[in-house]
Design a protein around this nucleic acid. Structure first.
Length: 472
RNA sequence: GGCUCGUUCGUCUAGGGGUUAGGACGCCGCCCUCUCAAGGCGGUAACACGGGUUCAAAUCCCGUACGGGCUACCA
């Protein structure tokens, strides 16, 4: 495969919705293939469905792709600007007799279909010149159909291998609607040819469109590109992932605080394997190891737990400055009023405990303000009675007198007072943590205290002494 | 219905004639430990089924079953 030179690929979403996980994966594989082989990655907006296409979706798709880091080369191509070209191709096909006008009404065909016939009966396939003129003159509407020849078509899919389809399984399908607009199968071919696409990489749902498109390539005398069909991403019900499976737009992952590299990493592992046991990759690493031959055919079920794990792995490898940048991108207020150095220390502690940027935000409140509520379960367990209060009070006084405020010193003083009272250190540690953070989990207590500072610790202990033990 | 593609632990996957069928997520246990994580160690769990071919089949072939996709004047 290393002899593939400068392939040209494209990602061709239709702007009828935001960028979804499935399309993002298709975009990623196109991107990886292009970059791995030093090729070109184009973006084409398939907006020929006027009724459903919206400008806002075009913007949303581009934004999502930029966020993911899937930068396309050149300017996006909009199909809506190319209607004339499509029209010309239809004319050429009509002229060389590889396509014909069909005057059958929609109703007639639907009735026929309802009767159990699945294929177009070929009514207008061999209309005489006179009949055509007559219909035209009477102002009757028509669609243009491709005249599918006898025989069979096969192609060598890079992932699925050779696929054969007999032509009698293929309808004389419509390439231009009665309103003159071209249909998908035609525009795809015309544009892929125009853009000199060498490798068409798309979802497996297009595998049965491929023979039809090859027929058009042949009818026009165009060179047929290589094809690679990607397996689908499935929901837990094993059906193709869709809106029904919940909010799975790329935008949502961004809002949930996932890192783009983590999402991409996860997506890459859905249907592809790196040929090693490695699982954590940056985008550049994915580009370096991507091989189409390692893409397999089976649909893969989307699993949020694994995404979350991968995300956590990325998080723990990321520098605190990058994390801070990411957090501020989704919440500009976070840590406002505190010095950057302080924020870095906070992030350093939370890194191994966070799967997403949201987790940092959700877990960090006590670094910025005194707890306003306390975990009741922990309070009842760890601060049972006045005995605890007494020792906590002693402990408060003890740390108040500390000259040097660092984790080791703080720890030593706590262990000493525990020993003096013949208690295990935990008997002091747990209530202290509760008093300082309001919860029972988090970073090492002594690190926490050193970060918070003496004054804050004393203040929070004082407040806790007022509150605990709770009334029974 | 027709066509087409697929089927290895619950999930993502490795393995493509001889393997104790490997790894990862999850789950469970242990270790570490001030908690929660992280990390380490261990455990749980799979070749859809039936026929062939072969000394030998998860692996090759044929069926069956099940699942996906397509079968639009959507893309």
């Amino acid at each position: 495969m290393s002899d593939i030179k400068n392939p040209k690929v494209r990602f061709a979403p239709s702007p009828t919705g935001q960028l979804h996980l499935g399309s993002a994966r298709t975009a990623l594989f196109n991107f990886l293939y292009a970059k791995h082989h030093r090729g070109t990655f184009y973006l084409r907006i398939e907006d020929t469905d006027k009724a459903r296409s919206k400008q806002e979706f075009v913007e949303q798709i581009c934004t999502s792709m930029e966020w993911l880091g899937l930068k396309w080369d050149g300017e996006p191509l909009f199909q809506s600007t190319r209607l004339n070209e499509y029209h010309d191709v239809v004319q050429t096909l009509l002229e060389n007799n590889t396509a014909y006008r069909c005057f059958c009404s929609k109703d007639v065909l639907e009735t026929a279909r309802a009767g159990g016939s699945y294929q177009y009966p070929g009514t207008c396939r061999d209309l005489s010149e006179e009949d055509i003129m007559m219909h035209m003159n009477s102002g009757k509407g028509f669609v243009v159909r491709l005249r599918v020849p006898e025989g069979e078509t096969h192609f060598d899919d890079m992932i699925y291998g050779t696929v054969h389809v007999k032509h009698d399984e293929i309808d004389d399908f419509i390439i231009a609607r009665s309103n003159g607009n071209p249909t998908y199968n035609l525009v795809v071919v015309v544009d892929d040819h125009e853009m000199e696409i060498s490798h068409v990489i798309r979802g497996e749902d297009h595998i049965s469109n491929t023979p039809k498109q090859i027929l058009i390539y042949n009818a026009m005398g165009f060179t047929v590109p290589e094809f690679a069909h990607l397996p689908m991403i499935l929901g837990p019900d094993k059906k193709r992932l869709s809106k029904r499976h919940g909010a799975l737009g790329v935008q949502q992952f961004k809002d949930d605080g996932y890192l783009p590299d983590a999402l991409l990493n996860y997506l890459a592992l859905l249907g592809w394997n790196p040929g090693s046991d490695d699982e954590i990759f940056t985008l550049d690493e994915l580009i370096a190891s991507f091989e189409m031959s390692h893409v397999h055919k089976k649909g893969a079920v989307y699993d949020e737990q694994k995404l979350s794990w991968i995300s956590g792995q990325h998080m723990s490898r990321l520098g605190t400055a990058k994390i801070l940048e990411g957090i501020h991108a989704i919440n500009g207020d976070w840590g406002e009023g505190f010095e950057t150095q302080y924020l870095y220390e906070v992030l350093e502690q939370l890194k191994l405990r966070s799967k997403s940027l949201r987790d940092f935000i959700d877990q960090s409140s006590y670094f910025f303000s005194d707890p306003i509520s306390y975990d009741e379960k922990s309070a009842r367990k760890n601060w049972k009675d006045d005995t605890t209060s007494q020792i906590m009070n002693d402990y408060k006084k003890r740390i108040d007198s500390l000259e040097l405020w660092d984790a080791d010193v703080i720890e030593a003083s706590l262990r000493k007072i525990a020993e003096e009272n013949n208690l295990s250190a935990g008997k002091l540690i747990h209530p202290t943590r509760l008093a300082l953070s309001g919860i029972s989990s988090g970073p090492s207590l002594f690190t926490l205290m050193s970060i918070l500072g003496k004054e804050v610790c004393i203040r929070r202990l004082t407040k806790a002494l007022d509150i605990f033990p709770l009334e029974s």
